[in-house]
């Protein structure tokens, strides 16, 4: 536990900066109110007032914690006001998008490695796809899937999520499948191995460490994709919708709570992926 002290120090520093920022940013409103009412405010009053606003510019940490607590534990998990409910909606889209992204990424990588034509025709588009801002693309995907008669909001969200998450998997898998050295390929040639045998016995196992490393990036991208998919055109469920409602209806604390719920969800997902990666590394005989 040698790391505890430095970690706690950083957390404490962040909290201090955060509180100072909340005080600084929220003070203007308090001063303004006081000026209108022709009152003088002392420092103690000013400080208290900046920490307890209903609509702060920057919510203070304890306000966020309270809102988060209320969102998670304060309601039935089936309630529309429960962050657990909205979290599950987002999680579902994230996992579908993640799975779809992996399938597309791995599939394209296998095709790219085995065919020069595919490499030259697909790879540039894959790169270009990631330069298009997803916030511009997301509403189109939602509208188009609606026009195609897909009622379930899950489908466009999963597609947006996969749109972001396939790319890191694709890039890593192409590197991974190409990682065997000449010597390894020559060795299999001396055995008279077929292309399929080279793939299953050498290329695929060689690529697994690359694959698992890319999953960490992909799961985070999936979550962002799912949340972005919840922002446009009237979604009412999911953490993204919660953020939007919070900011549009003047309830910043709801927005902050949803933001932190999303961060916690991301942290949890990355922990799970890391655990899977560790288990796979051990299984593959990699020393740790």
């Amino acid at each position: 536990m040698r790391n505890t002290l430095p970690v706690l120090t950083v957390v404490a520093a962040i909290l201090v900066i955060w509180y100072l920022a909340a005080f600084w940013m929220n003070a203007a409103w308090v001063m303004d109110q006081a000026a209108r009412a022709d009152r003088e405010v002392g420092f103690a009053d000013l400080f208290t007032a900046t920490m307890t606003q209903d609509r702060p510019v920057v919510a203070a940490p304890h306000q966020v914690v309270t809102a988060l607590w209320d969102g998670v534990f304060g309601h039935e998990i089936t309630s529309k006001r429960s962050l657990v409910y909205h979290g599950f909606i987002t999680l579902e889209a994230t996992l579908w998008g993640f799975a779809l992204g992996i399938a597309v990424g791995v599939g394209l990588a296998v095709a790219i490695v085995h065919s020069r034509t595919v490499n030259m025709s697909v790879m540039p588009w894959a790169v270009i796809s990631q330069t298009v801002p997803i916030v511009a693309l997301a509403p189109m995907i939602v509208v188009v899937s609606n026009a195609l008669g897909v009622e379930d909001r899950l489908v466009p969200k999963a597609i947006i999520s996969a749109y972001l998450s396939f790319f890191p998997v694709l890039v890593s898998m192409v590197s991974g499948l190409r990682s065997p050295q000449h010597m390894q390929l020559d060795l299999l040639k001396t055995y008279g191995a077929t292309r399929a045998q080279v793939f299953w016995k050498l290329r695929l196992p060689s690529s697994l460490p690359y694959f698992f490393a890319s999953l960490k990036v992909a799961i985070a991208a999936s979550l962002i994709g799912a949340i972005v998919g919840e922002l446009p055109t009237g979604a009412i469920n999911g953490l993204g919708a919660r953020m939007l409602i919070g900011s549009q209806f003047g309830q910043p604390l709801i927005m902050w709570a949803a933001l932190f719920a999303a961060a916690i969800l991301a942290g949890g997902l990355i922990l799970i992926v890391t655990a899977i990666q560790r288990a796979a590394d051990r299984r593959m005989g990699v020393m740790r």
């Binding site: 050295q181 010597m183 390894q184 020559d186 060795l187 299999l188 001396t190 055995y191 008279g192 191995a193 045998q197 016995k201 050498l202 196992p205 697994l208 593959m284 005989g285 990699v286």
Partner: peptide, 28 residues
Amino acid sequence: RAYGYVFQAAGLYPWRTIGGNVRLPLEI
């Protein structure tokens, strides 16, 4: 399969045991 070839580097597959590495040509 008239010859066995030994390279300068052992080039064993790190994800296979020693037995698994020797098994590789036999599987193929």
